[in-house]
Amino acid sequence: MATNVTQAPPAEKYTPTEQHARIVDFEDTSTGLNSRKLLMWTFLGSDVMFFGAFIATYLVYRGRSLNGPYPSEILNIPVTSVSTFVLLMSSLAMVLGLYYVREGEKNKATLWILGVVLLGGVFIAFQVVEFRIFVIEGLTPKVNIFGTTFFILTGIHGAHVTIGVIWMAFLAHGSHTGRLRADNALDLEIAGLYWHFVDIVWIVIFTVIYLISANDGPPPGAELLHG
């Protein structure tokens, strides 16, 4: 199998079909950079603005809830720290998986990619439980502006993680069956870029929503509203 993958034929032998394929798939481009990777990075630049707008909305509305529950009453920093740690470690598993795919160590690679899936799944489970507890304690998207901004921002991040987990699950399967190998490790690298990006968004969310806002109580004057 490996015989026909390693060496590309010399340039003058390409048919135009292969030429086009080379331009798209290989690094034979004007910039020398792979087109798919460039697409992913540009997409991440776009996603920066997407999450940026949500985070900015959260910050603008920070401390403007007119009624409870307020962040100080509801956020559970120790639990979220654990889920943050889990997500950070999934990124570590991701790079290790990519490394071993490149090295051709199939079993280790599969194991680490499965690790990404598992850790990502644990993160989502944490989030589901967290949402559930918050709702029981009275915080819903409808109840105040903190609930609105919190649930929409973390929910959309959770949706990104879910997409990533599904993607990684297929790549883990691919690695197990031998379709994902050193020569097309780019598939994993691109998925990895997405995964790490979701991770860095969470780094920002954890700081901004959890650590910084965790002491936010009622805004000044709120007691006048409710007697």
């Binding site: 950070l88 990124s91 570590l92 991701m94 790079v95 690298e189 990895g192 870029l193 790490h196 990006f197 991770d199 860095i200 780094i203 920002v204 954890f206 700081t207």
Partner: peptide, 15 residues
């Protein structure tokens, strides 16, 4: 601190 984490992931994990 979170900027340091951010930069570490972007620079090294995202290569």
């Amino acid at each position: 601190l979170s900027t340091m984490k951010f930069v570490a992931v972007v620079a090294f994990f995202m290569h």
